[in-house]
């Protein structure tokens, strides 16, 4: 007898997924509606204003938050995207990234705090995060599609699975790294648990948490093409079209647009991280 028939690992996952699909449909449709709403709002905000206004806004953000150099780069880069006729697709990708990142932070930062406060919780959380980060993305595309059908929603969910771990990890790390004397000082002045978290731990951990946010954004962007395979749309679609039709021009143009978006997001969030290290005032 085949020893594998005793415990069928792959089959087990299949059973679970099928059961979830048959019995938890209501939950998935709630999630789907929520994500769709969020995507809709982000897309509306990014795509409604005229292109030149949006380029101006992005340039201003880069100029003032990061540096003049990044401002100039943003102006030229986003101009190039416009010139290549990829503006709408780029904004739709940005909306997807933005939605995934917001959900990742809303879930990830509290999870990270929880993990930092309890070793037991962290001992469960850590392997789960390892699993999420190392399992090949294509593998969880299948259940994502089964639960949410094709379109941008499973794209956001798949991106979330991949991009959530650094937000949790670095929040956890940041809070665990708060010097013992700072915690003792806060306690010795009579902090409640809540005051300790809000007035001492989170502000001190903020630079590390910002590094986590930066990582989350970068990973989300790296999922754009893969998410494109399940119909998430945006630049991912463009790159995939280049691959399937062997159109070098289409592929490269989409790729360059992703790189420009990536550099813009990276520099701006890194600058925010550095600024959080040197804040003044109380």
């Amino acid at each position: 007898m085949d020893i594998r028939s005793i415990i069928d690992i792959g089959g087990g996952f299949e059973v679970i997924v099928t059961w979830l699909r048959n019995n938890m449909g209501w939950l998935f449709s709630i999630i789907s509606d929520g994500v769709n709403g969020m995507l809709g709002i982000s897309r509306w905000v990014l795509q409604t204003p005229p292109t030149f206004v949006m380029i101006g806004i992005f340039t201003a953000i880069a100029w003032f938050v990061a540096s003049k150099g990044v401002g100039v780069f943003t102006f030229l880069g986003f101009g190039l995207i416009w010139y290549m006729g990829l503006w709408t697709l780029t904004m739709s990708t940005l909306a997807l990234v933005f939605s995934s990142v917001v959900i990742a932070l809303v879930l990830g930062v509290p999870l990270g705090i929880w993990g930092a406060k309890s070793d037991k919780v962290w001992n469960v959380m850590r392997p789960t995060l390892d699993f999420m980060q190392t399992l090949p993305a294509f593998v969880y595309l299948i259940p994502a599609v089964l639960f949410f059908r094709l379109g941008p929603v499973p794209g956001v969910i798949a991106t979330l699975v991949f991009a959530l771990p650094p937000a949790v990890r670095l929040t956890n790390l940041g809070i665990r790294q708060v010097p013992k004397e700072i915690k003792e000082a806060a306690l010795s002045f009579g902090c409640t648990n809540r005051q300790m978290l809000l007035k001492a731990e989170l502000p001190v951990a903020l630079p590390t948490i910002m590094a986590g946010i930066n990582q989350t954004i970068m990973l989300a962007l790296s999922m754009v093409v893969i998410a494109g395979m399940i119909g998430a749309g945006g630049l991912g679609n463009e790159v995939l079209r280049g691959i399937t039709q062997l159109r070098i021009d289409v592929g490269f143009e989409g790729g360059i647009a992703i790189v420009i978006l990536a550099i813009f997001l990276d520099r701006v969030t890194q600058a925010l991280g550095t600024a959080s290290q040197k804040r003044t005032g109380g």
Binding site: E181, I182, E184, A185, F189, P203, V204, S276, G281, G282
Partner: peptide
Amino acid sequence: SMVFQNFGLLPHRN
């Protein structure tokens, strides 16, 4: 109130 060996000051505040 307590005073600490390595000060225990909050780096994000002036």
